[in-house]
């Protein structure tokens, strides 16, 4: 039986994809799932709106001077956020300075050196560390780490670096150093997990080519793995920084909570998240509340930027090493 050619009557080819061809219940189900997805986006939009709305009062009153003001005195209705910004940035950078080499070292150990089962076991341990609630780290920080810093580490630092402004002042235990250390403990897992994943995407063939040339394992890592993973590792570090900037409880418990700007790491300080934790429920008048929300808005903005930057960097590595994120 010969087939009849339909060319004589051209018509629109029925080119419905899944969406076009979906029947009513399928379309309804899609719509429901879409609505819930949209709800998540709406939630984020609402968060931005709430924070901006809440800050308007303080922004109108203080303008940019809010960010550069060094005096925070709610009793006098004077609100300068610089001490908190300073404390946040310094404690986070200190944490990064400690956590980056350690985190990267662990990731290299896990991906390049350790036998499979050791690597798995340590990955699990490090991820469990990430799961410990920050209030528990703070508890340990107050009762174990701070006294240890005060009695042992800080006097030793002062003895080794006499007169260095970084280590001046009475050793309180609480302060920027304590905050930086506790933050470092908290962000090491982030840096390890992401750089490990990024390094694992480097093709085995790259490593083998390097080894075959007579390179030592370290040379292979340095020449064949790290260059591929650079932007992803950078992403891991930025993500860790974002986490450190926004961390609240553990820092609040060990930083000393004093809104001063001092070059010494041993002095008490204050962070943006900590002042929110401590003063938000005590804020007795609108301007005070608004000033606090503006601090929250600044923190929100910075951490979102950090997150966006970090995820773009990690995604770029995934693309470069040819294993796209789906």
């Amino acid at each position: 039986m010969a087939t009849t050619a339909p060319e004589s009557r051209p018509r629109r080819p029925p080119t419905r994809g899944l969406l076009g061809g979906a029947s009513v219940p399928d379309a309804a189900f899609r719509a429901v799932a879409l609505a819930f997805g949209a709800l998540v986006l709406a939630l984020i939009a609402a968060m931005v709106a709430v924070m901006v709305q809440g800050s308007v009062h303080a922004i109108q009153r203080f303008g940019l001077g809010f960010l550069s003001g060094t005096l925070w005195s709610p009793n006098d209705r004077i609100f300068g956020a610089l001490p908190f910004i300073y404390g946040t940035v310094v404690s986070s950078l200190l944490a990064l300075l400690i956590a980056t080499p350690i985190g990267l070292g662990v990731a290299i150990f896990l991906v390049e050196m350790a036998p499979h089962h050791v690597s798995n076991a340590i990955s699990v341990l490090v991820e469990l560390l990430a799961a410990i609630p920050s209030v528990l780290l703070g508890l340990w920080g107050i009762f174990v780490m701070v006294p240890f810093l005060q009695r042992t580490v800080e006097p030793a630092l002062q003895a080794v670096f006499p007169g260095v402004p970084l280590f001046e002042g009475a050793p309180y235990g609480v302060g920027l150093l304590a905050a930086g250390l506790i933050l470092a403990i908290m962000i090491v897992p982030t840096i390890v997990a992401i750089s490990r994943d990024v390094m694992a995407t480097v093709p085995v063939a790259q490593r083998e080519a390097m080894l075959a040339l007579g390179a030592t394992p370290w040379e292979t890592t340095r020449r064949a793995v790290l260059p591929y993973a650079t932007s992803g590792i950078l992403g891991a570090v930025v993500l860790g920084l974002g986490r450190a900037l926004g961390e609240t409880m553990a820092v609040t418990m060990v930083i000393g909570n004093r809104p001063v700007i001092s070059p010494s790491l041993l002095e008490p300080s204050y962070t943006m998240a900590s002042v929110l934790a401590n003063e938000f429920t005590d804020a007795t008048y609108d301007l005070y509340v608004s000033a606090l929300i503006e601090i929250g808005l600044v923190l929100f903005g910075i951490t979102i930027l950090m997150n966006v930057a970090a995820r773009l960097l990690v995604r770029r590595t995934a693309r470069v090493s040819g294993r796209g994120e789906r």
């Binding site: 924070m51 606090l292 929300i293 929250g296 951490t303």
Partner: peptide, 20 residues
Amino acid sequence: FTDVLTGVPSIVVGIVAYTI
């Protein structure tokens, strides 16, 4: 944005819930 949401400081989430 779902990934970005994981990076929002939890204290900020507290302020949002307080306001809402």
